Simulated scan of single mutants.
Amino acid sequence: MNISMPELEQAINYWRLQRPAVGEECALSPEVNALADVYALMIINHSSSVALASMGSVAQQLIGAWRQTMLDVSTSNQSMG
């Protein structure tokens, strides 16, 4: 399974809201940092998508949690409407 650049951007933004930068230096949270590393490699390699299997386990888990949250929100919205 792959993740596209726009999906990765959405996942990063999700985790930025969940775990905002902290301190005077505005250091990225470990979650955002893990996904930012994947994002940087995609840019360097001119990739429009990347295989989840090629990422570290932390990034895979973060993307999985983000996707599950998006699925839960979608399912909840469908049941309300």
Rank of each mutant, 00 (worst) to 15 (best):
N2F: 15
N2Q: 14
I3R: 05
I3T: 14
S4G: 12
M5W: 12
P6V: 06
P6H: 12
L8Y: 06
E9N: 14
E9W: 07
Q10E: 15
Q10T: 08
N13F: 10
N13A: 15
Y14P: 04
Y14M: 04
R16A: 15
R16W: 05
L17T: 09
L17R: 14
Q18F: 06
Q18A: 15
V22I: 11
G23T: 13
E24P: 08
E25V: 13
E25G: 09
C26Y: 09
L28V: 02
S29I: 09
P30M: 07
P30Q: 12
P30V: 06
P30W: 04
E31Q: 14
E31A: 14
E31D: 13
V32A: 04
A34Q: 01
A34W: 00
A34H: 01
L35T: 02
A36Q: 03
V38R: 01
V38I: 13
Y39N: 03
I44Y: 10
I44N: 08
N45L: 13
H46P: 00
S47T: 03
S47Y: 08
S48F: 09
S49M: 11
S49E: 11
V50D: 02
A51D: 14
A51V: 10
A53T: 12
S54W: 03
M55T: 00
M55Q: 01
G56C: 03
S57G: 05
S57L: 05
V58N: 01
Q60H: 10
Q61R: 13
W66M: 03
W66C: 04
W66F: 10
R67S: 03
R67Q: 10
R67P: 00
Q68L: 01
T69K: 03
M70H: 00
M70E: 06
D72Q: 04
S74V: 01
N77K: 09
N77D: 03
Q78W: 05
S79M: 14
G81P: 01
G81D: 04
